[in-house]
Design a protein around this nucleic acid. Sequence first.
RNA 1: GUGAGCGUAGCUCAGCUGGUGGUAGCACCGGGUUGUGGCCUCGGAGGUCGUGGGUUCAAGUCCCAUCGCUCACCCCA
Length: 428
Amino acid sequence: MTIQALKGFKDILPDEARLWQHIEATARDILHRFGFTEIRVPILEKTELFARSIGEATDIVEKEMYSFTDRNGDSISMRPEGTAPVLRAFIEHGLQTRLPVQRLYTLGPMFRHERPQKGRLRQFHQLSIEVLGLDHPRLDAELIAMAWLILEELGLSTSLQINSLGCQACRPAYKAALVDFLSSRQDLICEDCQRRSQSNPLRVLDCKSSHCQEQYETAPAILDHLCPDCAGHFSQTKTSLELLAVPYAVNPFMVRGLDYYTRTTFELITDALGAQSAVGAGGRYDGLVAQLGGAKNMPGIGFALGLERLVLLLGQQNADACPETTTDLFVAALGEEATVKAFPLVHLLRRQGLRVAMDLEGKSLKSQMKQADRACARFVLILGAEELARGEAVLRDMTSKEQQTLPLAGEPEAVCARLIETITTKEP
RNA sequence: GUGAGCGUAGCUCAGCUGGUGGUAGCACCGGGUUGUGGCCUCGGAGGUCGUGGGUUCAAGUCCCAUCGCUCACCCCA
């Protein structure tokens, strides 16, 4: 058996890589319009960072992290998400002293040891976006609108669900009310929910069993238990979204898998990816910076886009969203003498900025024309023995099929310049 | 961690009640066109039938095990 990639680890082959580049370029462009700058953070961090931010009792920390002991005895983990490392860097370098509001994004691989399936891998990629230092609800709306715009410019249509999870002041009381409600119906709900009502009570609310959902219709809703501040924040977030014409649906049962979320949470959902419906999600995490040892009262909000899921969606919606990579010129040399002459000429043309290809092993002209065609070459320069003897070359326009003879006299730089001039004047 | 489906060429797949691995399509290489791409045509190369064991005169086909992939549960981007 030949060696294969690890389970849940995937190669991104050239055809697909073009789609990735398109997605990344589109997103970066929009992020820059919104004043975001890139930050790059390590893939390995101390395990404690994730335990303290994501939450000890979450599935991610409990059973999905790639954790191991470093040679010096530290427990380290491959990052399962991007927010914690970015916040660690923010705190470590005191970034808030440079700008009161930091708008940051990072892009790269995340690792979770889950069973792979459609749209879910063990190494996957996220575009992770964070804003630190501002808790105004208008920011919540702006960020959501930006996520919406990224998907829109990619040509993807999704639906947006939002919710508020309250804050340190109001969530505990709500949680208690919910636990109370659940304990009175233990015999009416599924086993999973019975288990979840102990481990993570909020989670029961998005149970897929219709029987359970019937019970939860009368369950206490978080939105009815928000403190005045949180209620005001949520209501302003909604009106701000309306000002930006971003269509949303309030889903009072939407829960997030990471413990650090407070107040606004949201998900961008598609029905085209099987079981993995969220292509992007995020929310506010006002207590997190303090929790990680940073400044008190340092609010934050962020979201992540799942790049594999965007690639899947884009791949099925419009297979050729990206233009083919093309070649400006293919130099077809016939025979050793011509090839030796063409070789440095090609290098020179490339130094001048042209996308140039040639066959290095002296194949037949037919074969080289075929290669030129496959490379989508706009022009082919044919250098044969006959032309060489006359000090000429033939330039073929692959679109119009017109051919013309070009003199090769003079310094290579001059030949090169004439060639570039001829090509650029002929191009549409 | 649990469940189901599937493993035959680089890819997509035929292969019937077991009887010699497919002239299959796409892709690749070469010829037809002795120096001109796409289309056409002819040819070529490419395989431990995932792996190991069992049943049988005979296994791609049946049985068992194992590995891998996929989808779903769970969870999540």
